Amino acid sequence: MALSVVGGAELAGNANERPEVDPPAETLAYQMQLAELERVVDEAADRGSRGTSDADASERTVRAEAAQVKPEPEPEPEPEPAPESASEPAPSDSTGPVPASCSEYSGNRATGCSMLLDAGFGIDQMSCLDNLWTRESGWNHQAQNPSSGAYGIPQSLPGDKMASHGSDWQTNPATQISWGLEYINNRYGNPCGAWGFFQSNNWY
């Protein structure tokens, strides 16, 4: 009996004390998972804060660099060529200088210049007439083309056409010049017109 009492007393004494009990393994695992989750969330928030700061800094750097770069100026458009004038072209240099008066010439040229003015042409036509008949006959009133038979200063073909202006057409420069000026006027309008045609065709 004594053993039972003692044993009973010991049991009664232990009943007043709260025994320490280890938590279940499931609870420990849950707490560890929760702590790990909180750590991951904190790290993510920290990285997001740093990333925002870095992004802001990068944007400010890009803006500053862009402000320093000046765009290249666009090339100015080339001016359009001026439209061609509808007026008559300027006389070719090949017409030669315009004489101040017929006194600049001598011989058959002087006669031709005087008769040119009498026929109503301007002094500016004399350089063309001089070029034309210099090429045709050298102003020689006896010039004759052996192959075609053209004759005189204007190289009339045939030569006897000039008889309409005088029977002395073979020997008189004035008769030849008179006929030649009429021919030029009727066919080309003026000596420069005849000279321009001659330059393209080598005849008039």
Rank of each mutant, 00 (worst) to 15 (best):
D42Y: 07
D124R: 07
S200E: 15
H165R: 13
P191H: 06
S94H: 05
Q68T: 14
F198T: 02
N108V: 14
G149T: 04
N186I: 01
E10T: 01
D56R: 11
A35C: 01
T134A: 03
A90N: 07
G112M: 15
V98Y: 10
P91R: 14
I177D: 04
P75A: 12
G166K: 02
D46K: 08
P23N: 07
E26Y: 04
A66E: 15
Q68E: 15
G8P: 00
S103G: 14
V6I: 07
E59F: 13
A64R: 12
P154Y: 10
R18Y: 08
T95C: 06
A174H: 03
T61P: 00
F198A: 05
G51N: 15
D22A: 13
P73I: 05
C128T: 05
E88I: 07
G96C: 06
S49R: 14
A100I: 07
L11C: 05
N140T: 04
R109F: 05
S148C: 02
L132Q: 06
C128H: 08
P158G: 01
P158F: 00
S164I: 09
Q144D: 01
A15E: 11
S178F: 02
W203A: 10
F121D: 09
Q155I: 05
G51T: 14
A12I: 05
P81S: 02
Q31R: 09
L181M: 07
G112E: 06
E136S: 08
G149M: 03
E26D: 14
E104C: 01
S53V: 14
W133K: 05
A163L: 03
R47I: 05
G51R: 08
Q176A: 10
C192H: 03
S4R: 06
A100F: 02
S85M: 02
W179G: 02
P89G: 04
S114M: 06
F121H: 12
A25I: 14
E78W: 05
A12D: 09
T52V: 12
G193F: 09
G196D: 15
S53Q: 13
Y105R: 07
P191G: 02
T134D: 01
T52Q: 15
G166V: 05
Q33R: 10
S147K: 07
S167A: 14
I123M: 08
P23R: 12
D160H: 09
G196I: 08
S4D: 03
S94G: 01
V6R: 06
Q33M: 08
G107L: 01
S49Y: 04
L117E: 11
Q125A: 03
E84S: 10
A143S: 13
A86L: 10
P146C: 00
R63K: 10
E74A: 12
T61E: 14
P146Q: 09
G13M: 11
W133A: 04
E78G: 05
N16V: 13
R63D: 13
F197Q: 03
I153E: 03
P24W: 12
D168G: 15
N14M: 07
H141V: 00
R18L: 13
R63M: 07
Q142D: 03
V41D: 11
M115S: 11
D93A: 15
A29N: 13
E43S: 08
D46W: 10
L157Q: 06
A9N: 05
M115Q: 15
T27P: 00
Q31T: 07
Y183M: 04
A150V: 03
E136F: 10
N131V: 02
R39E: 13
D168R: 06
